[in-house]
Design a protein around this nucleic acid. Structure first.
Lengths: 241, 241
DNA sequence: AAGTGGTCTAGACCACTTT
DNA sequence: AAGTGGTCTAGACCACTTT
């Protein structure tokens, strides 16, 4: 038998993962419960073992399930989040985080000065558009954001880039293809300007994240410098063995 | 032809990864250079495509290489590190980090009070041994460490656990099997005691890491609360797409 | 002994980039 | 058109846990 998935553009394992994620969200398998064994999932979806395993790997990276040899696969996470801001190491959860948050434009201008970028993160584009914003949820600001966006990308949809979240806009434009996404988190304290924007005391602890997205040529088309309120950030990691 | 790897206990793809890692370290392929294509690696090592790819995935997670469809696989990282403390999301780099660092024992005692542990991180063991230490490199302390070690593990080699780094000792004991490793990083400020131990001002920004290792039964056999000097921590992440 | 996830093979074909 | 990494299959067998 051949599988019943129709979308021929997204990989099969991604589609299987989406389906499984929905079921966990709907409570078909609750936290602590065991998922059907691989053989069962294989025959239900009519796909090969590898494909099921690739899908499960995605969910495991998101912290949603945990697999253990000889015992089975269990739901360990839930899809509704607590009061913490969770920094993401997986793209799907990252995009989901943006939902329900607001952002306020602070400044937009062409970048003139020099921009420093570690060589292993990417090559600099010829010119950037600087977009500064405050991000918040409910009535509280949580991040002070400055994004350098490759001017060639910016010109594809200037109004949208100034009004919406940058990354979803990039994803929606077929001309833009993000091939690598890296970020580096360091810890510091709030200077006067940031403190005021985030409504925290000067010198309060903050998380400083540099996020760099590159296209296929290795050019850094998006360089984001994001300062988070220290009391709201939380980063979960699975250590892969 | 059959592959030439002799160790039948570690997975083939791990052995291939070790070999490739060594070559990058020796400079056989330098930063920016292209690795041989998959087909070549397959025939050189006499393994299947899947196996090569699994090995490359390990290196990619470590930030050592970058793959891009249609173009090839390139060395993007190096194996000697800068002055930053790099928090790890991969087990092999994590173990490598310990080399060359020192640690000083502060306190060892049985834990009596209650220990809080989020349910999704693991179940509590019946009793713990508390081991407190300062870790440093050169002459500077960089982390204030408190580890709760399952007393049953501790009893297997009490002297070693008090003298050496905990995790390598655990790895060396065949009775102990770590099946999951998770950590959560939050940001805060140094209290008086920590400030003194880390030789930083009170209220200086710090990274607070809770690391939990579980055995196959889901019991948290190691609960580490580690406070890092904020100015030394740096966390790199690849966002998987 | 039975159940369950992990490893591995050989080979086909696809998506994307470079020549 | 040729080169390169990604996806997918079908099936064998292994390592580990539970019954």
């Amino acid at each position: 038998m051949h599988h019943a998935f129709k979308d021929r553009h997204t990989p099969l394992y991604t589609q299987v993962a989406i389906l499984l994620r929905q079921r966990i969200k709907k409570g078909v398998w609750k936290r602590g419960e065991q998922l059907p064994v691989i053989e069962t999932l294989m025959s239900e979806f009519a796909v090969a073992r590898t494909t099921v395993r690739q899908a499960l790997t995605l969910l495991e990276d998101e912290g949603l399930i945990q697999r253990s040899r000889g015992r089975g696969t269990f739901v360990t996470g839930s899809l509704d989040e607590p009061g913490w801001l969770t920094l993401d190491t997986s793209w799907t959860t990252f995009l989901r985080t943006l939902e329900g948050n607001w952002s306020k434009l602070v400044e937009v201008r062409d970048e003139v000065g020099h921009l420093d970028l570690a060589a292993d993160l990417g090559k600099l584009a010829p010119g950037y558009r600087l977009i500064s914003r405050i991000h918040g949820s409910d009535d509280k600001p949580y991040a002070d954001v400055s994004i350098h966006l490759d001017r060639r990308c910016y010109k594809l949809a200037p109004e949208r880039f100034e009004a919406e979240f940058i990354i979803p806009v990039m994803e929606s434009l077929p001309e833009i293809k993000i091939t690598s996404a890296k970020q580096v988190l360091t810890i510091g304290t709030a200077d006067f300007e940031t403190a005021e924007r985030l409504e925290i005391p000067v010198n309060a602890p903050v998380g400083m994240l540099r996020r760099v997205l590159c296209d296929d040529s290795g050019t850094a088309i998006y360089i984001g410098d994001i300062t988070y309120r220290g009391d709201l950030v939380r980063l979960e990691m699975n250590i892969n063995r």
